[in-house]
Computed example of a mutant assay.
Amino acid sequence: MQDSLFPDDEPAPAAPASAARRARGVEPAAHGADLRLLREALPASLRLGTSSWSYPGWVGSVWAQDYSTQKLAKQGLRAYAQHPLLRTVSLDRAFYQPLDAGQYAAYAQQVPDDFRFVVKAPGLVADALRRDESGRGQEWNPGFLDPQLAVQLCAEPLLDGLRGKLGALVFQLSPLPDAMLHDLPALLQRLGAMLRALPPLHERAPGAVLAVEVRNAEWLSPAFAQTLREAGATYCLGLHAKMPPIEAQLPVLRALWPGPLVCRWNLHRRHGVYGYEAAKRLYGDFNALVDPDPETRATLARVIAGTTTAGHAAYVTLGNKAEGSAPLSVLALAEALAAG
């Protein structure tokens, strides 16, 4: 009797709605024809994106519904890459913990063929100090700008894993203590030696760019530009409250011209050099442009247009703390570019 009541081909009872929802992946937001037309109006050599992607507040602009941070971190990239304007992402996680080739390959499998990653090199190589959980420097980091570590912990794993989906490798050099800034020539020598030790990115990732971002204005000198040029690298335009405004950073790019553009817009200047936590509190769920910065946006749009019109690639990523919502900042920048 039991067998006749419950035959083998009987479908299993439906899971509760909440359980079924958890079992599904992350669904992308519905994108209208206007976004696709906007993408078509942008230069093909431009890739816009955000800094990471695991933000529940992006529901409606990137996600179809509300998901947890954990679910988005694990399953959100595929949905993120379906947004018409998001053709790159800054893989910030790699700064805090080196990733292996398998982890990079897993990311690469989740995105279309024309998607490219901007990867931050590990802090084990890019940060001069070992820091505690609050970010305070505790002691000198002996691995800072170490050529062998840069190859083993960064270049080789990401090239093996991402292959042609690598867009830019960025060494974001964290803020240096004053004592180190007094001997910039020695630092430039160390930086150049590390960059030259890296395998040529373009051999395994055609079109990939090697870039250096800094957090001390003292770096911005002709000698810095020369060091980058000699190593086949470019300057990553770092729009951050610790750095001068965009106009004051452009001389370094001009010294490296012609060439590609890499830009990371991370923190609105109103928050000051230690303003990440203040920005996080103010911007909440990161679902609105709380602090629009049309001046920076207009200047950046001109730099992008000049770069792409000359036939060079441009990788531009924006963080939530730039204006309040990274996807909406991407949209505003795209509209500024399309408007000319």
Rank of each mutant, 00 (worst) to 15 (best):
R78A: 15
A19C: 06
A310S: 14
A334T: 11
D127N: 15
G137D: 08
L129K: 07
P327F: 06
S52L: 11
D8R: 15
Q82N: 06
A298C: 10
P122R: 02
Y107L: 15
F224P: 02
A17F: 09
R116A: 03
L331F: 07
K280A: 12
P199T: 07
Q109A: 15
P244Y: 01
P175F: 09
A314Y: 00
G32P: 04
A336D: 11
L237W: 02
T299N: 06
A211Y: 01
Q97R: 15
N320H: 08
A17N: 08
E277F: 10
P251N: 05
K120G: 00
T307E: 04
Q65K: 14
L237M: 10
S45K: 07
V273C: 10
Y283S: 07
A197D: 08
G192F: 06
S174G: 04
G311P: 00
R281C: 12
G60C: 10
R21P: 04
L201V: 13
L210D: 02
E139Q: 14
K71W: 08
Q75K: 14
R254G: 06
A205H: 06
L159G: 00
S325T: 11
A168Q: 04
P98R: 06
Y235T: 04
A310W: 05
D160Q: 15
P200K: 09
L331D: 07
R190F: 03
L237A: 09
D132T: 11
R269T: 03
Q249K: 07
S52F: 08
A278Q: 15
A326D: 05
R136P: 02
R264G: 03
W53R: 01
R297Q: 13
D146E: 12
T50W: 02
G238C: 12
P112Q: 08
G57F: 03
L37T: 14
F6D: 11
S54R: 09
L158G: 00
R297E: 08
A121N: 11
P294Y: 09
Q70N: 12
F6L: 14
C236N: 04
P112K: 09
A217N: 09
G167N: 07
R47W: 06
A105H: 05
H83L: 02
Y80T: 00
E218T: 12
A179E: 14
Q189G: 09
V62R: 00
G57K: 01
Q138W: 04
G60N: 10
R163L: 10
P7F: 10
Q172P: 09
Q189V: 14
F171H: 13
D34S: 14
L145R: 07
L191D: 02
A14G: 09
A15P: 09
Y96C: 09
D8L: 15
E295R: 13
L253E: 05
W219R: 12
Q75F: 14
D285I: 03
S45G: 07
L267H: 07
L191F: 11
A334K: 06
V170W: 00
A197M: 11
Q249F: 03
S18N: 10
E218G: 05
V330D: 03
W265L: 15
R22G: 08
P112M: 13
D178Y: 11
A225D: 04
A332H: 05
A179I: 13
E230T: 06
L72V: 11
L149R: 15
K120Y: 03
G143V: 07
P122L: 03
N141G: 03
R116S: 05
R39C: 10
V273T: 12
R131T: 10
R93P: 01
L37W: 08
E247N: 10
A179V: 14
P200Q: 10
V62G: 00
D127F: 01
G192R: 01
V209M: 07
L328G: 02
